[in-house]
Design a protein around this nucleic acid. Sequence first.
DNA 1: AATATAATTCACTCATCAGTTACTTAATAA
DNA 2: TTATTAAGTAACTGATGAGTGAATTATATT
Lengths: 221, 221
Amino acid sequence: MLEPITPAVEADAEKPKTRRDAAGTKARILAVATREFASHGFEGATTDDVAAKARVNKRMIYHYFGSKEQLYLEVLEQAYANARGAEARLKLDEADPVAALTRLTEFTFDSFSRDRTFISLLNTENRQKAKVLKKSSRVEDMNSTIMASVDRILQKGAASGAFRKDLDAFQLWISVVGVSYFYFSNIHTLSVIGGRKLDDPALLAQRRRHVVDFVLSAVRP
Amino acid sequence: MLEPITPAVEADAEKPKTRRDAAGTKARILAVATREFASHGFEGATTDDVAAKARVNKRMIYHYFGSKEQLYLEVLEQAYANARGAEARLKLDEADPVAALTRLTEFTFDSFSRDRTFISLLNTENRQKAKVLKKSSRVEDMNSTIMASVDRILQKGAASGAFRKDLDAFQLWISVVGVSYFYFSNIHTLSVIGGRKLDDPALLAQRRRHVVDFVLSAVRP
DNA sequence: AATATAATTCACTCATCAGTTACTTAATAA
DNA sequence: TTATTAAGTAACTGATGAGTGAATTATATT
């Protein structure tokens, strides 16, 4: 029990034990922190766990981010930046209004379906009344782009007679997101209450069809 | 500084200092715990705070509930029971299908508008993959009533020609709840991003109109 | 009045957690 | 080569948090 451990295997091909990699370390912390904050919320996530899972000394978190709250803010900013980036790649302006609205609705559904991390972070942030997001300088104009797109789609649709004319872009956008968001945000409790697994592929496909159909039906004149 | 405190005022009309009130104590703990879990999440809420704010010795929490998790489960069960109770009082079967669906949609919106506690609890529970709700024995059939109501509304509407005939009750119900839920669940982040306070009475009224209009438009044939 | 039971209090433990002090070592530039 | 800077480590602190042991006291029952 008390014999010294013989360093048999570890002695081979020893590169400098600790290669330094500032960017990599910071990125790894951020990636792990995103998972941890999403899974456990701000209060439930611990810097000790983040450090361990990122295979990094805890001190590094404070070296690169200063505090748990600042780390959380950067996680949130990155999540928003990702979402905005994906939206920007959507090219909603080229298609005809019905196709564009369809594409936006499907895109929203598919994004949430693929990864619920952003939903979890948003829920945590809203529980805290967005007190951290309010401190962000990078998040000001994050909505204007998509909002403007929706507005243009609605105008084209109203002009061509494809859509009714009294639609508000902001209200519609919230509804488009909402019908997908609620399904995925509450997928676990809904599954328990409803007695069926809502992440079953067949049910997901049914929901996707319903969501698109629901939105398109609502906007027709 | 070190003189004994003179018990001047407190000496008058002294009823037995600690009146015992099992039901009251338990109810107070539950009420405070509901607020605390909603505000801070399961991990963020503390039994010390619950005890202090309920003006109760911490030991009482363990006396009546056994553990923090069990307390949280009872909070959740009570919240579900309340929601179900309110739904049951709705009497959706008497009105004509359009009126009934309108009433359900408005009721859902108004419930969330009045109090977002239930939303917060649901979000916390979903972050934990409903692991606590799964342990509940009281929650099994909680959905069947409202689900059956929606189904009957849809059948009447389809028969009378007021609604399209291919609607699924479960999918529709999720959409009806979703368009209100997302607005209130994310009211703080949406307010920051959108640059306007979504809990402003004028905006609330606008949202309410939109939601009802959106749902009714979606179901017409 | 004596007894049993349940409500309540006090003082404690042990673990964990955010953040820090003080150091070591690799990479880089002079 | 050496000095400087930045990356990384180890070991700690002080606070707080969930949960408990053991007593005390109010109330109901006999």
